[in-house]
């Protein structure tokens, strides 16, 4: 190939745009042709000079910060809908669930603690030689006995026609709060009924039935009072007595 043809490719050679076979062929030619070799060198030098001279202008730090902030702000804004629509509600739900879980766990622990204490009271009372301070099967005797002894009053159910019988009652304390402790009998089982002011009773967190140490529990709040029914009978019997107490007038 004549030199004129090769010189038409010298720019592409300097720019690295020749194919490998062309590069090799031009390399062979330049080893034999000093003029083409010099011209190729001149083009490479010119290219390098332009590269150096062309890197001339630098943005100011203020302008760089301005554009960077602008792009990042728009990026944040662009992803804002994602946060608003998906992530924020998800986080709120997570926080709510975690809080609820924490509350429920705390309430359960508190309830367990109260039930254990009541179970102890129940057992200790039954083991005592004088389990009740007022011995009577008559609710009209037992109820007045508590007047002046505890800071509230309550209704007791009529037990006629039921399997339950009232044995009596005593004053008791739960977390330093005075309350009524009534003992009922069902067949050969004794069942304790504890009544405390709802605001002062420590088991105000949850209501419902449960089993602790094989004792069956039922508790509920009614008319500002919290009732606990504890016994070693089945849940149905506890529930039956609880219903009588709830319906008492």
């Amino acid at each position: 190939m004549p030199c004129d043809d090769w010189r038409g490719k010298l720019d592409a050679y300097a720019d690295g745009e020749l194919s490998l076979p062309e590069m090799n062929a031009l390399g062979d030619h330049m080893r034999r042709c000093a003029d083409c070799s010099v011209q190729a060198l001149q083009r490479v030098q010119l290219k390098r000079s332009v590269a150096v001279a062309g890197r001339r202008y630098e943005p100011s730090a203020e302008f760089r910060a301005k554009v960077t902030n602008s792009v990042n702000r728009k990026r944040d804004r662009g992803t804002g809908w994602f946060w608003k629509i998906l992530v924020v509600p998800a986080l709120l739900t997570l926080i709510f669930v975690a809080g609820l879980n924490y509350y429920v766990r705390g309430a359960r622990a508190e309830r367990q603690r109260v039930y254990s204490e009541l179970a102890d009271l129940h057992v200790a009372t039954l083991a005592s030689s004088t389990p009740v301070d007022v011995v009577s099967t008559d609710r009209h005797t037992v109820k007045p006995w508590f007047e002046g002894r505890i800071p509230f009053t309550f209704n007791l159910p009529e037990l006629q026609g039921t399997d339950f019988s009232l044995l009596g009652g005593r004053v008791t304390y739960l977390a330093q709060v005075p309350g009524a402790h009534l003992i009922y009998r069902l067949r050969k089982h004794e069942i304790s009924v504890f009544i405390f002011p709802d605001s002062g009773a420590p088991a105000a967190a949850l209501s419902g039935a449960a089993e602790v140490r094989s004792f069956t529990f039922e508790d509920w709040a009614q008319n500002g009072l919290r009732y606990f029914v504890v016994g070693d009978v089945g849940g149905n019997d506890i529930e039956a007595l609880s219903k009588l107490l709830r319906d008492a007038r």
Binding site: V50, A51, G54, R55
Partner: peptide
């Protein structure tokens, strides 16, 4: 020239 030589 800038695109070719400066920006390569």
């Amino acid at each position: 020239l800038l695109l070719c030589d400066v920006e390569e």
